[in-house]
């Protein structure tokens, strides 16, 4: 991969993701105030001591935004990694074992995908107690259906290619074939898919938090911050728009990188749907 061949849009995306990750990693050093510290009047305008103003309880919006990056990115990342692990293991198992196992997994996957993700999450979260790990688990399981579909397609696709056949005839072991032949050739589409799922996880988590079913207060998280400040909108207070814009920016940046990765591997088509 040549550094010069990376388009500007992808650089913008990479820069944006880097900023968000820096904010998340060094939140206590970057934030001027504490996450739950009430420092001023409610809904103070931006500028002056509080760069982005204060929120519905008088907490500094910028500080909460920086701490929120931590929660939002961490939870979304955890859910994505988990969904990938789950989807990949199951899909490779299905592709390798074939037959009854493949049928069982695939049909069950079809059934899961027949229910809209948000509706499914609403039904499940209505029953389960509200814990962070339950939220991550629900997001991961719902997301893994998409990973399963892609993973199975890719695995079946690559396993029958000539170079794999050639490696087999050369007498290479299965570990060599998986790591030196199949994995490098599936890395790009899988990486793109990972980015896509990550962007989707961010949006999904924010949506759930916005609906009051995601991360519970007083922990700062971007979707929840929109929910906290939404009543200010009618008075012309833009506090709810700031975290909303942060979500949008991060998702756009991830998508820009994904778009570039996708173009590099346009031969292997991946599904982009995420309803």
């Amino acid at each position: 991969m040549n550094v010069k061949s990376i388009p500007i849009s992808a650089w913008v995306g990479i820069a944006g993701i880097a900023i968000a990750i820096l904010c998340a990693a060094f939140a206590p050093f970057l934030a001027p105030f504490g996450e739950r510290e009430i420092v001023g009047e409610i809904w103070m305008p931006a500028g002056g001591e509080f760069l982005l103003g204060t929120d519905n309880l008088g907490r500094d919006l910028l500080s909460r935004l920086i701490y929120g990056a931590r929660t939002t990115i961490l939870v979304a990342l955890a859910a994505t990694v988990l969904s990938f692990a789950l989807g990949m293991v199951l899909s490779f198992a299905a592709a390798v074992m074939g037959g009854f196992v493949d049928q069982l997994f695939s049909r069950f996957n079809d059934l899961m995908m027949a229910i809209p993700t948000l509706i499914f999450a609403l039904v499940v979260l209505a029953v389960l107690p509200q814990h962070l790990w339950i939220l991550i688990l629900v997001m991961a399981v719902l997301d893994s259906t998409r990973v399963f579909r892609i993973g199975r397609a890719v695995a079946l696709d690559v396993a029958v290619m000539e170079f794999v056949e050639a490696a087999r005839l050369r007498g290479e072991g299965s570990i060599w074939i998986i790591f030196r032949e199949i994995l490098p050739n599936t890395l790009s589409p899988l990486l793109a898919e990972f980015g896509l799922r990550f962007a989707f996880s961010i949006l999904f988590l924010s949506t759930l938090s916005f609906l009051g079913l995601g991360i519970q207060p007083p922990a700062a998280d971007w979707g929840g911050m929109v929910k906290d400040n939404k009543d200010g909108i009618i008075f012309g207070i833009s506090a709810a728009l700031v975290p909303g814009a942060a979500i949008a920016m991060l998702a756009i940046c991830v998508n820009l990188v994904v778009d570039w990765l996708m173009k590099r591997t346009s031969s292997l088509k991946g599904g982009r749907g995420d309803a």
Binding site: F210, G244, I247
Partner: peptide
């Protein structure tokens, strides 16, 4: 580029922006 950006916008952000 615009559609890529639009895909990434959460529904509630678009909604509140329009309200604003």
């Amino acid at each position: 580029v615009i559609s890529l950006a639009a895909i990434s916008l959460p529904e509630f952000f678009v909604g509140y922006l329009l309200i604003m």
